[in-house]
Design a protein around this nucleic acid. Structure first.
Lengths: 215, 215
DNA sequence: AGCGTATTTCAACAGTTGTTGAATTGCAAG
DNA sequence: CTTGCAATTCAACAACTGTTGAAATACGCT
């Protein structure tokens, strides 16, 4: 039963290398050989552990998706438990959606930054964006939008969806950490400063939601 | 002098084909042969008219960047002329920044959608995002942020930069037209509906700016 | 120790990649 | 018509692509 010892280690090394390179250069910008060189393993091992480059890509995505969905669901449920009788504020619901991710990036930036950068690229790609994001994250997103609807039943559904669209764009550009805001601001703001962002994004987005939904 | 007749036509065909394919699958997801097959021209012509794949990519980006910067600058200057004495409202400044682009997409969707989708991918790519967006668009962005600073000198610079960051994310995800909001909303919202977006984004973003800058 | 399976290596494949040089065509000016 | 250059075609290159099968090694179990 406890046969696998070196197995898990190399599988992880491959996934780590793939995650970093895919995040930097995209699916087609990276070769299997580059990944395996970074993972310090033979090329053929990629096809032994995962059966194709595409399956390796999917495995990279899957590896952390569940954890992310879990911590966000947990944050939402905690919030709802805290407000057993009345409804939670919109700001709090949005913070429960964005802050668990940003908090992860604050606490262990090295571990998470590549995965998030990968999500950023996928979300804005016509080729992958629609299907993959839907597959991995939409169940949680729907749960989140339901909470919003319950909190503000007077808001039009359409406005909630568009607001989420804007939120999603702001969040994923943050994940990309392109350094553009660093240039633009002359160093005043840094795109790696997740603390600064987690203090601002929920406020920014919540105000947007209200502006749309309350006309 | 009037030697070039077929030249310009094929150059344009190559650029059109490259624009569409790069937008769909990214720089590395497309081969020069695929581009030239779509352009109905010999492979070698790509290297005659542009000297490398990378230079073709840059040419695609450059082709429309100037037009976009011009119409946005014009919208901003018109706005400032209209408010010669007092300062324009924040909503109007933001609309002058976003609506010219969205209006282009409303009026001639077929012509523009691929170029904008390409921008969306680049903006969220760690590899290209920082440098290319800075090179092509930051002069205009700085002009726009100056207008905001003049309109609201009481706002902290930092908050303006972060707000722009969120705006940029929301705008570029819109350009990607991934169809994700279509799935999510069960068809209620369509990611190609630029009319709906241009009615909402300036309001959403302006409220966000205010929320950040006015604490 | 030795057996069996899980893991790793090695070498190779057929097809594709970006790119180039030489040969060919098209066209305008003398 | 011919000369000259711009535009286009054709064929090829070396390097690299994803992927595979067979051989070698490592490791847990009896």
């Amino acid at each position: 039963m406890a046969k696998k010892r070196k197995t898990e280690a190399t599988r992880e090394r491959i996934l780590n290398a793939a995650e970093e390179l895919f995040a930097q250069r995209g699916f087609d910008g990276v070769t299997v050989r580059q990944i395996m060189r970074k993972a310090d393993a033979d090329v053929a091992l990629a096809y032994y552990h995962f059966k194709s480059k595409r399956d390796l890509f999917d495995a990279v995505l899957l590896r952390h998706a569940e954890v992310l969905n879990d911590i966000r669901l947990q944050a939402l449920e905690e919030l709802e438990a805290r407000h057993a009788d009345e409804q939670p504020a919109v700001d709090e619901i949005i913070a429960a959606f964005t802050n668990p991710l940003l908090q992860l990036l604050v606490e262990d930036h090295e571990k998470w930054k590549h995965y998030f950068a990968l999500i950023a690229q996928i979300n804005n790609s016509p080729e992958w964006g629609g299907e993959l994001m839907t597959r991995f994250f939409d169940p949680l997103v729907k749960r989140f939008l339901e909470a919003l609807r319950r909190a503000r039943p007077d808001w039009a559904e359409e406005e909630i969806y568009w607001s989420y669209h804007f939120l999603s764009g702001a969040l994923t550009l943050t994940f990309a950490e392109t350094g553009r805001i660093d240039n633009l601001s002359g160093g005043l703001c840094r795109s790696t400063d997740m603390q600064a962002i987690s203090e601002r994004m929920p406020r920014f987005v919540a105000a947007g939601f209200r502006a749309l939904a309350e006309g």
